[in-house]
Amino acid sequence: MREGLRLYFRMIGMQVRSEMQYRASFVAELVGNLLVTGLDFVMVAVLLMRFQAIGGWTLAEVVFLYGSSAVSFSLAELFVGTFDNFEQWVVRGDFDRVLLRPLPVIFQMLTGAFPLRRFGRLAQGTIALGVAFVLLKPVWNVGHWLFWGVMLAGGALFFMAIFVLGATLSFWSPQMHEVANIFTYGGQFMTSYPMHIYEAWLRSIFTFVIPLAFVNYYPALFLLGKPDPFGLPGWVSFLAPLIAVAAFRGAIAIWRVGVRHYQSTGS
């Protein structure tokens, strides 16, 4: 275990140093990423300040949800970045190299990239959360804070599961990546805002098909002390860790099937 951790940091270190080799490009992308995500945030803020509230949610509450989703997603992006453009690995046959090394495949996937340049979203999420806390001034006990931590971690784990599933599709068809993006980046967008602003069908998809609502929206309802407008029992707010762990394990199981279907490339 300790040896595994040490190797993990060694390999992540390699990725970070690799990224730093292109300093100009790194800085440019980091700044670009910060600007784009920042702009996105300003847009939401402007809209909210204009309308004060969206369907019973105050600005602060929406920003809290928005920040939580961004932090969860960016953590997932950071840790499972390799899965995000995995179709490239399949197309170029780079996955061969992973299979040739005496380390678990998943371990290598977790250490195959560490896109620090995507740091922008994490920064943006953190700032958003800071703003939300200043506005909300929540009176939380230790339980609340823990619950919130579990909510963020659950969200991150669930997004990781989606990334892994999206990558798995590449074993069968590398172009499926574009479809997978609907659920990764699309899912992140969905979970940034309260569920009731969406049409019923879309809401159902993200509640029952890809139950992202349970790792983000419902725990937030509990923390913000809001009733569920859709009448689900209160305890669903506590399902986050269960659903996240189940989703991640399921994704890994399907991923394993995919690995056995890996066809490599011509030569």
Partner: peptide, 20 residues
Amino acid sequence: RTGLWWDLPVIESLDLLRHI
């Protein structure tokens, strides 16, 4: 295709492989 880390000095790859 190389099994080495593309952007880093050769010795770093060898050193990491030693640990792997």
